[in-house]
Amino acid sequence: MFPRGPEGTCAGMHCFERKVTSEAMTTKAALDKILTALDATQTLEGLQSIIESICKVFAIDHAMYHWVDSAGDHYYFGTYSEAWTQQYQEKNYTRIDPVVIGCYQRFHPVDWRRLDWSTKPAREFFDAAMEHGVGNQGYSIPIRGPNGQFALFSVSHHCDDAAWDKFCDQNSRDLILIGHYFNRKALEFEPDRAPEQAQPLSPRELDALTLLGIGYSRAQVAKTLSISEHTLRVYIESARFKLGALNTTHAIARAVSCGMVII
């Protein structure tokens, strides 16, 4: 299912993978695996298979990523049926889809229930979507890229409100991060795009991850670096996003596997 990770994964990486499993966070471990696979993806087909594995790990019916580039061209990866994506394009549903209307020129994540489905075209659109197996619930993350790029990362599922509340409560933050990581990867495939330098970790971020990696507590790391634990938290948060990781353990593992951190 997963493309192989980068070569040269060192012993430190395995050590962290064991740690994650021992915390019995199977979902977290599976997510970390998806992100590692995402990072290694070199092809558009690879992105499609990542989308499919996201559904599996979150146990949801659908996930999709829709990207409008600076030239106005659309790209789509997702698990909706061929018939539905075709109908969506043919009927030019972006004009009436409340998800697109509600997310365009916004940056906050959107629970589909908050959108305006009350107009007749929106209701008809919704009925058509349901006929094609799109879930009655959804959660979308608008992403603003450079040069007017706009992307939408969505998940969708069939369930009642209580179940969806619980799902969002547990997963929204991870989904927000995954959406942004997916977008970052997708941008690499934009034609004529100069390859973007991976954002390097700052010396302080490297120090923080290295010390955490060798088992220091946050308090010990802060003391060693003569910074407050609050400052440390910001370093970890920004390092995590640069590394495309969902949590600190995964961030350390990523830094180790990229050779940025030696432990």
Binding site: L115, M130, N136
Partner: peptide, 12 residues
């Protein structure tokens, strides 16, 4: 928009 009211989505 509200995530809790009787949403038109559930008219199905």
């Amino acid at each position: 928009g509200s995530a809790t009211r009787e949403a038109p989505m559930r008219l199905t």
